[in-house]
Amino acid sequence: MKGDNLTIWNFFFLEGFSRYPKLEIVLFVFSLVMYLITLLGNSTLILITILDSRLHTPMYLFLGNLSFMDICYTSASIPTLLVNLLSSQKTIIFPGCVVQMYLSLAMGSTECVLLAVMAYDRYVAICNPLRYPIIMSRQVCVRLASVSWLTGCLTALVETSFALQVPLCGNLIDHFTCEILAVLKLACTRSLLMDMIMLVISVLLLPIPMLLICISYVFILSTILRISSAEGRSKAFSTCGAHLTVVILYYGAALSMYLKPSSSNSQEIDKIISLLYGVLTPMLNPIIYSLRNKEVKDAVKKLVDTLSSYQTHGSF
């Protein structure tokens, strides 16, 4: 359906990986397994942070928010991908495309800010341990988490709103999701305003939080190296290692997608990066934190024991 100044499509075709039909079943199995593990792992992490009083600390408050974000982010795109991988009609209606675009932008942007907040939390915990309970009070932590969500949701609203005003001269999206860069490639004319908005928000949400994380870890490493006890250094490294691993995975994929020249990689490589970024990273987050954290392991074991005991008593 076309207007005078704006082209509005009732639905879009998602090309996805249709150029490789033999790989679609493999990709379906891979994506389904990763998605189910993501749901299970992150849901478990949220559940134990709520039920286990030992995990009612700033670190796990932020980690619970991160897990919820990962569930929302993957649920915005992966179910559509799974349906389209098995379908000959790889379509998505216009409202669904808008919701998908907004949620992926909102969750991704919120995570950028939250990872910087988590780095600050680790900085205070290691560099100012005596003042940590005062600086990172529950009220402060809730405010920091709220600011992360507000920043991500508002920037996503701005990007989505302006993207919807760009006239599109086609409805075939060369992607498996309504990713904003892929949608804007359908624009009839290049919008300088949209380019500037994308650039400013990308700089605000990628390099700046990354710089703050790097500064935090310079102070953290400097403090750790001054710890005389080998056991103390090992514990400090273990505390920060999980977060640093997640940061590298997340920002590595995000920077490669949003801060590169458009001609440097083919669209096929962009789709592969996006799939790994959208499925693999959210799946690995709870695993990384669980494997490197004794408190999480103990909480999971306690939850499993409780569920087993409940099932045993229920069977009688």
Results as ranks from 00 to 15, higher is better:
residue 2 K to Q: 08
residue 5 N to V: 08
residue 5 N to S: 07
residue 22 K to W: 08
residue 27 L to C: 03
residue 32 L to W: 00
residue 33 V to H: 00
residue 33 V to A: 06
residue 46 I to R: 00
residue 47 L to E: 02
residue 52 D to S: 08
residue 54 R to K: 13
residue 57 T to G: 09
residue 58 P to W: 05
residue 59 M to H: 09
residue 64 G to K: 12
residue 65 N to S: 14
residue 71 I to S: 03
residue 76 A to Y: 00
residue 77 S to E: 07
residue 81 L to K: 03
residue 86 L to Q: 11
residue 90 K to I: 02
residue 92 I to F: 11
residue 92 I to G: 10
residue 102 Y to T: 02
residue 109 S to A: 13
residue 109 S to R: 07
residue 110 T to Q: 12
residue 125 A to T: 10
residue 127 C to R: 08
residue 130 L to S: 14
residue 132 Y to V: 04
residue 135 I to K: 04
residue 138 R to V: 01
residue 139 Q to R: 15
residue 144 L to W: 07
residue 155 T to N: 05
residue 155 T to A: 10
residue 159 E to F: 01
residue 161 S to V: 13
residue 162 F to V: 12
residue 165 Q to Y: 03
residue 166 V to F: 04
residue 166 V to R: 01
residue 169 C to H: 03
residue 179 E to L: 11
residue 183 V to L: 09
residue 185 K to Q: 12
residue 186 L to K: 00
residue 198 M to P: 00
residue 198 M to H: 13
residue 212 L to F: 12
residue 213 I to P: 06
residue 216 S to V: 13
residue 219 F to P: 00
residue 220 I to T: 14
residue 220 I to F: 01
residue 227 I to S: 02
residue 227 I to A: 02
residue 235 K to D: 06
residue 236 A to Y: 06
residue 238 S to D: 08
residue 250 Y to R: 10
residue 251 Y to Q: 04
residue 256 S to I: 04
residue 265 N to S: 11
residue 267 Q to D: 15
residue 268 E to W: 09
residue 269 I to R: 03
residue 276 L to Q: 13
residue 288 I to N: 06
residue 292 R to G: 14
residue 292 R to V: 12
residue 292 R to F: 06
residue 296 V to I: 15
residue 307 L to Q: 06
residue 309 S to H: 13
residue 310 Y to Q: 15
residue 315 S to K: 13
